[in-house]
């Protein structure tokens, strides 16, 4: 296996958690809710997933537990922002702070524990194709799931009636309400979906990417996922491009550090964050008007 192939493989693993979390947040924001707590839900998912996988010996149960944990965190967020019409920015920050603390408590007894990374699904013969064989036909289940998720989210948003309603709620909650749709119920389901995705992304980090738990292991990936949604102008296919772009930057800086080019390692580590800012500048400067869902971030209180 050549270096190029190895780099491509690691790009996929670096991009997958970003893709999953960003797709979840995309659906949430399309429904008009801004949940800034992705980082918090993701890291709770990572800790819970790893703990359950160690305790039960089953990666599948770990993944399911991580999804459930992300959804539980999201339900907390929904209770405040939808039930009590609280400020979404502040509540999202609270979710992140709480998540960082909770993950530390959950993962405390599992620091130093190790397990094998999740088994890869290898398609016989096809995985022997040079260059793309390993890339396409020998990945772990969550990578395949992320691709299915991408297709599913695209189909749901742009080809299904329910997706149309969800987008309508995000563009103008008052109109959707007047048409008889339950704005809060739709938003609640969207927020739960986003939480599940963030939990799954966390599980990927602790069960497949680095098969151990370490405190703070998400390292800002939840925030980068939020940036990817903005970068993608709230479109699923562009989310995929964004996730793989950022995955590429992450991997390139790791390889450059390993090569020891004489560039300070801290500068290389800062690259993904600097790239995020640069991309946001390019996207925001080049765009006329905002492409965000019109009701994004505004609370909805139905009047009778």
């Amino acid at each position: 296996m050549g270096l190029f192939e190895a780099i491509l493989l690691t790009v996929v693993t670096a991009a997958t958690p970003l893709l999953i979390a960003a797709l979840g947040e995309l659906v949430v924001e399309r429904s008009g809710v801004l949940n800034l707590g992705v980082e918090g839900m993701m890291i709770v998912g990572a800790a819970t997933g790893f703990a359950v996988a160690i305790l039960t010996g089953s990666a599948l149960l770990g993944v399911l537990a991580a999804v459930a944990a992300g959804m539980a965190m999201a339900a907390l967020f929904a209770g405040l922002t939808l039930g009590l019409a609280a400020n979404q920015v502040a509540t999202g920050l609270a979710l992140t702070i709480l998540g960082l603390g909770l993950s530390g408590l959950i993962g405390r007894d599992f620091i130093g524990a190790r397990r094998d990374p999740m088994a890869k699904i290898v398609v016989p013969y096809l995985s022997d194709i040079p260059v793309i064989g390993k890339l396409v036909f020998a990945q772990d289940p969550i990578v395949y799931a992320s691709v299915a998720l991408l297709a599913g989210v695209w189909w749901f948003l742009f080809r299904s009636r329910a997706g149309l309603v969800l987008r309508a709620v995000g563009e103008s909650h008052a109109s959707a309400h007047a048409l008889g749709y339950s704005v809060l119920k739709i938003r609640f389901l969207a927020v739960l979906f986003g939480g599940g995705c963030a939990g799954l992304a966390g599980a990927y980090l602790s069960l497949a990417y680095t098969p151990f738990w370490s405190p703070g292991m998400t390292a800002g990936r939840g925030w980068i996922a939020l940036a990817i949604v903005v970068f993608a102008s709230w479109l699923p296919l562009r989310v995929a491009i964004g996730a793989y772009l950022f995955g590429g930057v992450t991997v390139l800086q790791l390889h450059a550090q390993a090569q020891g080019l004489g560039i300070p390692s801290q500068l290389m580590s800062a690259l993904p964050y600097l790239a995020t800012i640069l991309v946001l500048v390019l996207i925001s400067a080049g765009r006329r008007g905002s492409q965000a869902p019109a009701s994004l971030g505004t609370p909805f209180v139905p009047d009778r």
Binding site: L80, L84, A85, T91, T96, L98, G101
Partner: peptide, 19 residues
């Protein structure tokens, strides 16, 4: 980490009560 959990919970309750 309990400190962080406390602080996160506190912000939740503050925002909830402000409603």
């Amino acid at each position: 980490d309990v400190t962080r959990v406390f602080q996160g919970l506190l912000l939740f309750f503050v925002l909830g009560c402000d409603a």
